[in-house]
Each structure stands twice: as C-alpha cells, then as structure tokens.
Write a protein that binds this DNA or RNA. Structure first.
Lengths: 112, 112
DNA sequence: TGTCATAGTCAGATCATCGGTATATAACGT
DNA sequence: ACGTTATATACCGATGATCTGACTATGACA
C-alpha cells in the first residue's frame, strides 16, 4: 500500500464509495454533496482516478448494468481501499490538529 | 484569495509558519516534526512553494540575516495566509468528518 | 583531510488534475 | 419538429505542484 498523500478529488471519490457501491455519475453528485458544493468532479478526473484506484486495488468493479442501452458500471471500495482511506483520515486529522493549534498560538501568543 | 485545495507540502509549510517566522531550513525540520516524520520536504519543493506563496501574498519575507557568510532568510505568515490556512483546516475537517462517518456506516450497516 | 550539518538554488521529469470534446439515449418544453 | 437538459462513460492535450537529484558554500568536528 503506497502511502503517498491523496489529492482532494481522489479522497472524495473513496469517501463517496465508502458508504455504498456507486456508478460514476452517482459518485460525481455524491462528491458535490459531501463537499458542500465546493468540489465538482470533471468527468476526466473521475474516470482517470477510478482507473488508477482499480490498478492500486482500492476500488473494484461491483457490477455492470445496462439501462436504456447505456452501460452503468458500479464501483465498490475494497478492504485495502477502506484501510487506505482510514489511514488518510488519521493523517489529515493530525495535520489539521497541528495547524489549528498553531493558529491559536499565533492569536494568543503572537500579537500580545 | 484562490481557494484551490492546498497540497500536503504547501499545507505543512503554512502550518510551520503559523507558529512563528522561520527560515527555510527550519521549516524543513518543523514539517518533519509536525508530520511525525512522515513528510520530508525536498529543498526544491520547499523553496518553489515559498516563492509561490509569496506571489499569492500568503507568506512574506520577515527579515534576512547573514550567519557564517550564509544567507538566512526568515519567512512569516501574512494575515491573508493565516485566513487561507484556517479555511483549509475547516475544509479538511469537513472532509475527514464525512469520510469517518461513511467508514463507520460501512462497518455497522455494510456487512451486518 | 574528509565529512557532517547548515542554507539555499536550479533544471528536468512525473503525474494528478483540469478543461474541453465526443458519443448516445430519454425526457421535457415550446 | 427541435433544442435543451439529464444521464453516463470515455479520451486527449495542457497545466502546474511536486519529486529527483545535483550544485554552491561555510563552519565545525574528528
């Protein structure tokens, strides 16, 4: 398991899939919701990321359906993927904690 | 203020400077400490990032000293930089919260 | 004399993301 | 009948932050 830091879109894709298997378009909307409308995934970003995540073994194809002649491919978070996401959450928590503390120090000790 | 997501090295550089002005080499060591030894900034990454952050107005040169014939340049977090970092902390907190909740849902509702 | 710690700079490569485009069907409005 | 919007996936060139690694320079220590 590589532990290179996840970029925001990748992190949010994994987060979307953590709740339940979803297809690409569903992920796109879910990510928009998770981020409070701040992050809109481009199609290119989404499918390229899904391909990478599949190669890494963090997501897998759950099933494929054909609806109205269109392919609908559902993706699922694997166990290693869930572990990877959990590790990343811990990492980010540590960083945000550190940043928060230092910003407080700045306010209290910095100017006074 | 652009609100593009900060990459990990950039976030940690701002965090290092949040506590107090520091010179490049000091930032490098501080970041290593903040991240629990997980993140080691390359010199190229560090100084390139500092240049960008200066252009964005998030950090500024605090003062310069010459020690042992070597230049020692201190950087300082500006007010906009502190605001930017605080905003990023909130953003990351929201994301980690969402990811954490979904991972819990997965454990309780997913398999059982 | 060599090497470690300090301190900063630069050139080239990688790779995730961005922006835009293409394809295809169904539903809806006018 | 026609254009637009929503659904759904895929491809491609450009951008830009980061990585890799080398380079310059000094003081201290063995």
């Amino acid at each position: 398991m590589s532990n290179a830091p996840l970029r925001e879109p990748t992190f949010l894709i994994l987060t979307a899939l953590a709740a339940r298997p979803q297809h690409g378009y569903g992920i796109q909307h879910d990510v928009e919701e998770i981020s409070g409308g701040q992050v809109t995934l481009r199609a290119g970003t989404l499918y390229a990321a899904l391909d990478r995540l599949r190669v890494d073994g963090w997501v897998d194809v759950d099933r494929e359906e054909v609806v109205d002649g269109r392919l609908r491919r559902y993706y699922r978070l694997t166990e290693p993927g869930a572990a990877r996401l959990a590790a990343e959450v811990e990492r980010l928590r540590a960083h945000t904690r550190a940043a928060h503390n230092r910003l407080r120090t700045r306010l209290t000790g910095g100017t006074a």
